[in-house]
């Protein structure tokens, strides 16, 4: 994003609207991104971002030490812990954290009161959230897979790709929640733990409407291990992932555009 040259006039009076350059649009604004990164990684909640992948690696190291190299165990752990617990949790933290606290404490004003399209703000924050959650979930998943059985049956790569795809969708969903409600983290956790963690694993019908299953479809395609199965086809999975990401992102932008920072009188 190169900076366009606005009027650098120092005299305040006089209309500049006509002469002014257009409002900044696009999908990525460097400054918004920098602020978001620092908000996400510079605070206490970032600890959780580090803790969860660390926990995963500790567990897989322990398991590797116990069980040696084993494809079945690898698939179980990567699906049971990485994809169904860690990925959504990281998604909650990154997705809501990218925008929720700013709206909550009102600092978002400093972004909104700028000649920048609000859709640009949302898309930038979404990209940041995606970046952060991919780094903190797909990468550890890949590492965990390698530790467990060194990409045997392509399991490590399969689950890493699935985790990345899921991270994108989760980021969008939770970013939208962050715009919609002050209780985004709680709602997100309930969704992540209950829907994805329990219902998605137990109630068959719910599985078709589960980010975890959609991304599992990708893992199923990539891995050579027959124990990795999804309830949805690859096409369905990918279509749903794209659709959910796009709709959530659009809706978040729409909501931010009409966000009312009403006085609290």
């Amino acid at each position: 994003m190169s900076t366009t040259a606005p009027s650098g006039r120092t005299h305040p009076a006089g209309p500049r609207l006509q002469a002014a350059p257009p409002v900044r649009s696009g999908i990525y604004h460097r400054t918004v991104a920098r602020l978001t990164y620092r908000a996400l990684l510079g605070r206490r909640r970032a600890l959780l971002l580090f803790c969860l992948p660390l926990l995963l690696l500790v567990i897989v190291s322990a398991v590797r030490a116990l069980a040696g190299q084993d494809d079945g165990t690898t698939a179980d752990l990567l699906q049971g812990f990485a994809l169904s617990a860690m990925v959504p949790l990281i998604g909650v933290i990154a997705g809501t954290g990218a925008i929720g606290p700013e709206i909550d404490d009102g600092a978002i004003v400093y972004l909104l009161a700028k000649p920048i399209k609000r859709s640009t703000i949302v898309s930038t924050k979404l990209l940041v959230a995606i970046g952060v959650s991919v780094v903190f979930s797909a990468l550890p998943t890949l590492l965990a897979g390698l530790v467990l059985d060194g990409n045997g049956q392509h399991l490590a790569v399969a689950f890493a790709v699935a985790a990345a795809a899921a991270s994108i969708a989760y980021s969008a969903i939770f970013l939208m929640l962050g715009v919609l409600t002050r209780h985004a983290v709680v709602v997100g956790l309930v969704y992540a733990l209950v829907w994805e963690g329990v219902i998605g694993n137990v109630v068959p019908g719910a599985r078709t409407l589960s980010v975890q299953q959609w991304s599992l479809a990708i893992a199923q395609r990539i891995s050579l291990d027959s124990s990795v199965t999804s309830d949805v086809s690859l096409t369905t999975g990918v279509v749903f992932l794209v659709l959910v990401t796009a709709v959530a992102g659009w809706f978040a932008a729409h909501k931010l555009r009409t966000l009312k920072l009403a006085g609290e009188e």
């Binding site: 926990l55 567990i59 322990a62 398991v63 116990l66 069980a67 165990t73 179980d76 752990l77 049971g80 812990f81 617990a85 949790l89 956790l189 733990l193």
Partner: peptide, 21 residues
């Protein structure tokens, strides 16, 4: 909730692996 659930989940899953071994 997350602390209790995640630690218990992690412990029991690794215990499960140990059991199978």
């Amino acid at each position: 909730i997350a602390l209790f659930v995640i630690t218990y989940g992690a412990v029991s899953s690794v215990q499960g692996v140990a059991m199978s071994q």
